[in-house]
């Protein structure tokens, strides 16, 4: 194990964490403001990826695809909010889980109907191909590095949006007392639609960015969705800061665990046995992390109510 490999894997972990943050931010906003648990968030991620891949294929431009995924996912989010989600705010979590589970079935099967079962592929844009030299002599793909930078910029942007703008003020007010801001004349229904569309756009954007690294296929959103749940549970539901820290933590632990645990077991086991035990444990590592954090802090690291 060299230092260069370690740095590379650490960056991979951060890049994965940044992706998770884009997903988790929308989930945690929607939960914090509307009290809604949305399983269909992963479908919006998938829609973003499919839109980007198909627009990029048709026009030859990744950037047009990226714009299409942002706009398309936001529009899909707004439509879903108005048609379905709006009726769920007053229901208990059980109904919300079930209705959004039904939405997953509809979106996944609908996408399969339109695009078929074969995965689409999305090329990394010309400008971002190639690699950057890292200290220690390693090369790191420019595209992944750009994802990290974009993710950090979005995190800063979200922070500014929520703490400095009028919309952000309303979102925060909606989190603490929704009747009150309604009484003060804010159009709650539109605010909810905007928040939901914002979360959807972030998820679609994440899907489009990841689409160039992985294949774009039906069901790609589900593993990410579940990891995003782990992230917001660790970070504390409703907290953007918690989502960011939780996402980086989960991304790094998952990525490094897959590299380091087999090596660790290799110190006192045979190589094949160490690989199987190590990789089995590594796939469970983030869930163990979550269980430990919850055993210590049942409300997560940065519970929204405890600030």
């Amino acid at each position: 194990m060299t230092l260069a490999l370690l740095i590379e894997q650490l960056l991979n972990g951060i890049q994965f964490g940044v992706m998770l943050f884009l997903m988790a931010a929308g989930l945690t906003l929607v939960f914090g403001v509307m009290g809604l648990i949305n399983l269909a968030h992963g479908s919006l991620y998938m829609i973003g990826a499919f839109l980007c891949a198909s627009v990029a294929l048709a026009t030859g431009s990744f950037w047009l695809g990226l714009a299409a995924s942002l706009a398309g996912a936001a529009a899909a989010g707004a439509v879903v909010e108005i048609v379905v989600i709006r009726r769920l705010y007053d229901r208990d979590h059980l109904d919300q889980v079930l209705a959004t589970f039904a939405l997953i079935l509809i979106f996944s099967e609908g996408t399969r109907w339109v695009f078929g079962s074969f995965p689409l592929y999305l090329d990394i844009p010309q400008a971002l191909q190639g690699a950057v030299a890292l200290p220690g002599g390693a090369q790191y793909p420019l595209y992944r590095l750009s994802i990290i930078i974009v993710g950090v910029l979005i995190a800063i942007g979200l922070y500014l949006l929520i703490s400095r703008t009028r919309l952000g003020m309303r979102i925060r007010a909606g989190e603490s007392d929704r009747e009150m801001i309604g009484a003060l004349g804010v159009d709650i229904r539109t605010l909810y639609t905007v928040v939901f569309a914002l979360g959807a756009a972030l998820a679609g954007f994440a899907g489009a960015l990841v689409g160039a690294i992985q294949s774009v296929q039906v069901g790609m959103g589900e593993p990410v969705l579940i990891l995003a749940f782990v992230v917001i549970v660790i970070g504390g539901i409703g907290s953007i800061k918690g989502a960011l820290i939780g996402a980086i933590l989960v991304g790094v632990v998952d990525t490094l665990g897959r590299i380091l645990l087999p090596e660790l077991f290799g110190l006192f086991m045979g190589p094949s046995q160490a690989t199987s035990v190590g990789s089995a444990l590594a796939s469970m590592a983030i869930y163990i992390l979550m269980a430990v954090i919850l055993a210590l802090k049942p409300q997560g690291l940065f519970a929204a109510g405890a600030q």
Binding site: F31, I37, H93, V97, I232, I288, M290, A291, A295, P298
Partner: peptide, 18 residues
Amino acid sequence: LRTSGVYFIMITLAFAQM
């Protein structure tokens, strides 16, 4: 069961995924 509500939903899900 130390948690409740939406936390419980997600944590039971996470354990099953584990």
